[in-house]
Every structure is written in C-alpha cells, then in structure tokens.
Design a binder for these strands. Structure first.
Lengths: 248, 248
DNA sequence: CGGACAATTGATCTACCTCAAAATTGGTGG
DNA sequence: CCACCAATTTTGAGGTAGATCAATTGTCCG
C-alpha cells in the first residue's frame, strides 16, 4: 500500500525518513507522537504565502503541491513540485520569513506540525535533525538541476529532464511503475516551472509525442522510451539521492 | 579590519556565524579549536569535483569561489559565487557524492575542515548545527532567486539583480561600501551564471553603463544609481537573510 | 615586450515569445 | 444522462530577445 495513510499521517513522514536514514525505535516513536493537525485542501489553494512568518510546517500526506513566486506583470516562476512524504516548507523552521508561496496542485491532505515540536524533536535526536537537514539539501540539489535546465538546456531537453525527475521521485514512494505515473499539472504550470510559455510547452510536447518518447493520457504520463528520454535529458539521478545512505 | 585573518582562519567562520546566530563562549571556543588545514590556491583551480566523495568541507577565508557544472558541448552553468566566510561545499557533510564542482574564481585562501570534526561539533552544539543548517537554507533561497532570474527575467534585469545581490553580500562582510565593490569575474563567467552568452552580457552591460546605472573600472563595480538598480531588478533582499535572527 | 586572455564589434540566424482565436476536455448541476 | 460552462489544449501568424560565428581591439602580467 503506497504511502497514503490518512489515519496515520505521520506514517508518511516516517516512511520518508526511513527511506533516507536508519531510525531507532525511540526515534520512530518520537516521530509518531508528533502533534499533527490534519486538513484536506482543494486544488489550487495557497498553504503558505510569500511574506508569511509561519509557526508550523506542512507535511504533504496525499496529493501534490508546488512552490512558486509571483513577479511583475502576472509572471510566475514555479520552483518545485511536491509529492507525499515531502515537507515543502521545512525551511521555515529556520528561516522565519517566507520568500515564496506554497500551494496545492491537486486536492490534497496535509498535516501541520508546530515548529516548536519539530525543534524539540531535532534537538533531542541529532540524527533526525541530520536526516531533515539532508532533505533540505536535496531540495537545493534539485534547484541546481533546474537552474541548469532553464539556463542551458533547450525546451525539449528541459521537459525530458523534468519527466525523468518526477517519474523517479514518484517511483521512490511507490506511486509510479511500469513507466507510467500521474502528471497532474497543466501545460501552463509546466511552462512556469521550466521558464517557457504555455504555447511552446504545448508544441514541444507534441514533438516529443511525435518522436514516440512519451504519451499523455489525461493526467497520466506514459514513458515509451525511457533510455532515450534519459539520453536527451542528459539525466543523471545522483542529485536526487534516492539511495539510502549509511548512518552519518 | 574586514574579515580576512590568515593567522586565524577560523575567525572568519566565527565572524560569519556570529552574524547569523548568538553563540556562547563554549561554542565560540569549540569553533576556534576546529582542526583546519589552510591552503593558498591560484585562480581557476578546482577545489572539489563533480563525482567526488569529499571527507572535508572548505571554508573560504580569502578570495572568491564559484560552483558550476559542465554539460554537453562544453556548456557550463554556474550556480553561485562565494565570498569569505562561506562554506560552499558544506552540503557534502550530509550528501556524500558531489553533483557539481567547486573552484576558485580568484586566488584564494581556504581552510579544509574534516567532516568528522564538523559532525562532532554539530552533535555537541545543536544551535551551531541550526546555524549551519540555516546557512544551507539561505543557499537554497539564493538558488530560487536565480531560477526566477533565468526563468522569467530579461538579461538586463538579471544582471541588475546579480549586482544587487553581490553588493549586499559583500557589504555584510565589510568588503563593500560607498556603492562600490569588487567584481572579479569575466563576462563569460557572468554569462554562465545568468544563462546568457558572453556577447549578450557584453552588450547588456554597455546598455546599463549607457543608462548611467553602473560603471566598471577594472574589476571594480561602481553602482551609480542604487535605487534605480533595485527597481529594475525588482530586488527584495529578504531572501539573503542578512538580518541577525533571534536564537531559535 | 610578448603572449594569452578578455572585451568589443558586426552580421546573421533562430528558438522561443506574444497575441488571438478555435477546438477540446472535464467537471457540474439539472 | 445530458447539456453547459470554464478551463485547458491546440493552431496560426508574426515578432524579438538573445544566440552563434568570426574577426578585431584592448589589457594585463610575467
């Protein structure tokens, strides 16, 4: 059963942490007894806004979220897409003012955890602190990869790269397999993530389909030639750090 | 005397941490007694390379450094510029394989600190761990700001934004003032940081000079109209987190 | 003084953008 | 179950910011 326990929202977090670190029984217990305020949200709803000073962080239990910032003339840049197990605004634990916003992409279940409790947890269990720290570092590695894409890759390569990234992230949490996964964002949202216009995303997707690289059915992405997709994206999965690390 | 003690390389780190957190005497002492292997490097020298698995991190004591990654056909993307007090590869403390490279931009003095010692320090002093964690989070915030620039801003705006960022970073460590600071990178390096060609950087700089926004003398950037520069860059310094935070 | 590197200029080209309209899709209420 | 609405996707046409290539000039350092 992949990763979507409503009754036990913190099991989602536990699952994620155990995929990147080894926990003791005591640590497991401490995580599971974190206070969590669970809420169901509609699609397209802001969770935290640019300028806010949150006192809690948000664990994504089910559904998708994304981070973005609005700039002049209604332009928008999307920085990341998030899937269950992520804590997209974990950074607000140590950076008090939000410099961007977080919103749901689909309807979603989220669990709010007070900073106070997280801080207590990380102070009591340094190895949990390190696992969470590490998670924010992977976040940074993904930003770097996006910078490469937007700065130095063509539209075609960028789309291919994003598809590789999302497929592997979803596979890691059991939400993808057999070269297919959900892709719940609009072409306009893809455009704002990749620094393109929606029109050009549309045309580039058509070319990719024409080459038999991928297919799109509704909100489902089907990867028809994985190796070729990796090749054109110049994709190296190292930055995602999906292999479990030895304890620090 | 701004920030460049060779005899006391760790004073550079201490200075940086005290600018973002409040330290106890014991913490100060622990930082100063970290083992540090100091080295002087020439300009343009790799410090850590893509694919390496470092066992130490590098404190920049004097000079500039930058992080980059090479991709196909000799293309390069630069992710960040670093100044004294930075630990550009601190992330390798928790992410074991480098997914990019770090090199000197100018000749530089660096101090290598073993991961082992850093890990011991952060385990013993959670508030130092939090200050360092926070520092890597600011790193991530800067990446996001670069994503916005490359994704959604014009060449002119991007350059303006970078100049604002560098000026404030240098000012914070006492290496800038009176609207002037060092700018030791070539136009080709600016181009690789901003996702542009060197030719276009050149032409855009000429336009900026023509507008009387900035002047360049050798490696010195002179900001002639700061407010106007802020305006065209749409610059909001929040993400740099230069204000000191209350203890967590 | 020489050699290498960096900045600058000119000319041409193209990937991607903008604007605007048409076609398609999916969700919703009756 | 169908009809309708709003949101998306798709198509067309024309424009431009910035790329590429290649040559020239300037500068710094040993």
């Amino acid at each position: 059963m992949p990763f979507t326990s409503h009754a036990q929202p913190l099991a989602t977090l536990l699952h994620k942490l155990e995929s990147i670190a080894t926990l003791s029984d005591e640590e497991r217990g401490a995580i599971q007894s974190l206070p969590a305020n669970v809420r169901r949200l509609k699609a397209g709803q802001d969770i935290v806004r640019d300028g806010d000073k949150p006192t809690q962080s948000c664990l994504l239990v089910e559904g998708w979220a994304f981070r973005y910032k609005l700039i002049h003339e209604g332009r928008r840049q999307i920085f990341s897409f998030h899937v269950p197990g992520d804590i997209p605004d974990l950074q607000s634990l140590h950076i008090h003012t939000m410099d961007h916003s977080l919103a749901t992409l689909t309807k979603a279940t989220v669990a709010f955890i007070p900073h106070e409790s997280l801080r207590e947890l990380t102070r009591r269990f340094p190895s949990i602190a390190e696992a969470l720290w590490r998670d924010t570092l992977v976040d940074g590695a993904i930003f770097r990869e996006w910078i490469i894409g937007i700065g130095r890759r063509s539209a075609y390569e960028r789309l291919a790269h994003l598809f590789c990234e999302l497929y592997l992230k979803l596979q890691a949490i059991g939400l993808a397999g057999d070269y297919r996964c959900a892709l719940p964002m609009t072409q306009g949202e893809l455009a704002d993530a990749l620094g393109l216009s929606n029109v050009h995303v549309n045309r580039t997707l058509q070319t990719m389909r024409g080459h038999g690289l991928i297919a799109l059915r509704g909100n489902m992405l089907i990867i028809e030639r994985w190796n070729e997709l990796l090749r054109v994206a110049e994709f190296d999965p190292t930055y995602l750090q999906l292999e479990k690390q030895a304890a620090g």
